[in-house]
Write a protein that binds this DNA or RNA. Structure first.
Lengths: 215, 215
DNA sequence: TAATATTTTGACCGTTTGGTAAACATTGCA
DNA sequence: TGCAATGTTTACCAAACGGTCAAAATATTA
């Protein structure tokens, strides 16, 4: 029985280990060089195996990338999904910012992989953007709009609110080098995420509390 | 006299035209595929000339990229430089956001070129980040801090304030595909920049007006 | 342990890539 | 007009690239 077929049926211990090693290495490489900027050799070396050996587990470079993106999209929107329509608006938004910042801190490579993909025109995930992503955002935007209608949140454009939270939080993963360079060795350390959280919470909670006029 | 030497002295009309054509084409290509993802052939084709012809004007692919980045950095920080310490804090911040949004709208390729560079670890511009950029940000951060001290602006971390403005405005250039996909054909049109401006101004002006407690 | 299935390797292939060399064409000017 | 400087093209190269193949090595199991 060939390995190809086997993988779809039963997976060996070695298969499981090596595929995971490859994906981990590929995430590192793809996220820092983009798809075209990464070579199979680079990934193989990072995974500690030869190129043909790697290609025994994944038929093409594209396959690896596709799987990584697929996995990513699966969990990337969890924080947004976690917004509860019945919760307190400002508390929900604060939690959302928190969770997104934690993801930027704990999964910066995933963030950069995504950013690379979008930056280059999202050739492989346009469907996901226009389908599931749009639907989820539409749903949560309606929740936010309802909060505003009920006077529990300042009236504002829910889509641009979501965009701005994406932007500000992912910035700390995607533009990490710049953030560190500007903050310098002192303030660029581990504390920067807490400083960011404090600032963003202040900005959003003050900027969005009801009683504030808005568009 | 060789062309190489001539370029440093007097530039022919043809030289001027072709170098400009090449840079324009290269900006388009580099900004959407990154450095390694772009090929000289692609740039040459976009510029409407043959590869050797292009290489007559620029010795290497790297040279083109370096020049583009150099030009970019030169104007990229103009909006930040334009912040006047003696102006009204909220008005200055509003203008800054406006200008940055306009740049995202009018020069999205430059924004993406920069984003690509930072995302991939800023290998070619670390010096610029740690030097001139950091100095400028330090200077303006002090201005902002002073505003807070004077009670004309809510106390806040000036660095993260600047980061958040960078992030939210550049987002509309760098993540354009995603923004369009989510907003859909109706709201994704030309109006999205004005909607964004309205939202961001509300957020920042309300979130930062003095009288607000902060860290 | 023997037989079988799986895993790893080295040698290789066609294509693409960045870049060169030299011949050819064009332009600008005395 | 003639001639040198400038500009363009054709043909090419070596290295890097994505990927294949068959044989060797290892692991699994009857």
């Amino acid at each position: 029985m060939k390995a190809r077929a086997a993988r779809t049926q039963r997976r060996t211990r070695i298969q499981e280990e090596n595929e995971e090693r490859i994906l981990k290495a590929a995430l590192e490489v793809f996220s820092t060089h983009g798809f075209r900027g990464s070579t199979i050799d680079q990934i193989a070396e990072a995974a500690g195996m030869s190129k043909p050996n790697l290609l025994y587990y994944f038929r093409t470079k594209d396959d690896i990338h596709r799987l990584l993106i697929e996995r990513l999209l699966d969990t990337w929107l969890d924080p947004l999904r976690a917004i509860r329509p019945r919760g307190d608006p400002l508390a929900e938004i604060r939690s959302y910012i928190r969770r997104k910042l934690e993801m930027a801190r704990d999964y910066p490579r995933e963030s950069r992989l995504f950013a690379n993909e979008i930056l280059q025109g999202a050739p492989r995930i346009t469907d996901a953007l226009e389908g599931p992503l749009k639907r989820l955002v539409d749903e949560k935007a309606e929740v936010i709009r309802q909060w505003s209608r009920e006077g529990r949140l300042a009236p504002c454009d829910p889509y641009h609110l979501i965009f701005s939270i994406w932007a500000t939080t992912q910035h700390y993963a995607d533009f990490d080098v710049q953030v560190r360079a500007v903050l310098g060795p002192d303030r660029g350390g581990d504390g920067r995420f807490e400083d960011a959280a404090r600032f963003l919470e202040q900005l959003y909670l003050e900027g969005l509390k009801s009683g504030t006029k808005g568009g």
